[in-house]
Design a protein around this nucleic acid. Structure first.
Length: 320
DNA sequence: TGCCAGGCGGGGT
DNA sequence: ACCCCGCATGGC
């Protein structure tokens, strides 16, 4: 019973991307799965209920699929926003180019932008990163999507896997544990309930309040702490004021910036300001989200750019 | 085989 | 304001 979506519009984003110096390969490949990106073409989920999906090539040719009667201009705007085409990252790159952790990244990866998602998906991503290695977290997520197996059929363009909705999860929460989420499954159920009941407001409303208040609203869900809330705000609303500092960033920044671990958050915010969370995400890409010991070795050796041949944010789509 | 991981909340001091 | 523990699982 896959939803059938019609082709409702086509658009070429190549010129807009070039003008903004956005590298669509980097945008589409980073933190993506094989079922959504194949190295040339990505499926970008714009909406879940009812579904809307964009099929985008790394050159910027995009086709928009949705229910009949959907507004193509509106979908085009959402796609451009999801790809970060409207984001002026020059302030971030300016700081990064003089930073001991991200200077090489600024030089080679200036065209990367966060590919933003719904709040619900961002929270799933963030919860799966809790107290788990990068690899375990993303493996959980891939299994979760496949386990619920929600799909849409795109007119003339095959089927696409969709993430489960929060209603899907509440209807059959057992698939969470079956996907290896462990105790995180309870947190995901709490998130689903909070979104369903409106106790956690939708994106538009969260976007209107201050960063601290947005964080507090998300933290009202049991199991969602500061790290998870901040990561979700960055991944969904592109709100970067508050850095999701975990023990990995804490240890790396402590070393690179020469401050005690207890001072890392303050120092990070002093250096990165409104780009704080973006800098954290960039660091995970730059160091391939390597486990802490290896990441510290990479830092010592000055190997501060993604390296081929391992499961990493930049290469995830080749493996999962 | 254990041990630990990009967190969190609840308990202690 | 700290410190410490348990927690489900997967990965090595």
């Amino acid at each position: 019973m896959a939803a059938r979506l019609r082709l409702v519009g086509r658009v070429d984003l190549g010129e807009a991307a070039a003008r903004r110096r956005v590298d669509l390969f980097k945008v589409l490949s980073v933190y993506n799965f094989s079922f959504w990106f194949d190295g040339a073409v990505a499926r970008v989920v714009l909406e879940l209920e009812p579904p809307a999906v964009a099929v985008v090539s790394v050159k910027g040719e995009a086709a928009l699929y949705a229910q009949e009667g959907s507004d193509p201009a509106e979908l085009e705007g959402r796609l451009a926003a999801a790809l970060g085409l409207a984001e002026d990252a020059s302030g971030f790159l300016q700081v990064a180019s003089g930073d001991p952790l991200l200077a090489p990244f600024a030089r080679e990866w200036g065209g990367w932008r966060v590919r933003s998602s719904s709040l619900w998906w961002a929270l799933l991503v963030a919860v799966c990163q809790q107290n788990a290695s990068f690899r375990q977290g993303w493996s959980m997520l891939a299994r979760l999507v496949r386990s619920y197996g929600r799909r849409a059929e795109l007119e003339g363009a095959g089927e696409v896997l969709l993430p489960p909705t929060h209603r899907d999860v509440l209807g059959d929460p057992s698939r969470l544990a079956a996907s290896g989420l462990g105790y995180r499954a309870r947190t995901v159920v709490g998130v689903a309930e909070a979104l369903s009941s409106g106790r956690v407001p939708p994106e538009e409303e969260l976007a209107r309040v201050g960063a601290e208040e947005a964080e507090a609203l998300l933290r009202s869900v049991r199991g969602v702490g500061s790290y998870t809330a901040r990561l979700a705000l960055a991944l969904s609303l592109r709100r970067y004021e508050l850095p999701p500092i975990d023990r990995w960033v804490r240890a790396i920044a402590s070393r690179a910036y020469g401050v005690g671990e207890g001072e890392v958050e303050l120092e990070w915010r002093r250096r990165w300001g409104r780009w704080s969370a973006l800098a954290v995400l960039a660091l995970t890409v730059a160091l391939d989200a390597a486990p802490l010991r290896k990441a510290l070795e990479r830092l010592e050796a000055g190997r501060l750019l993604p390296e081929p041949g391992e499961v990493s944010p930049a290469q995830l789509w080749r493996y999962y």
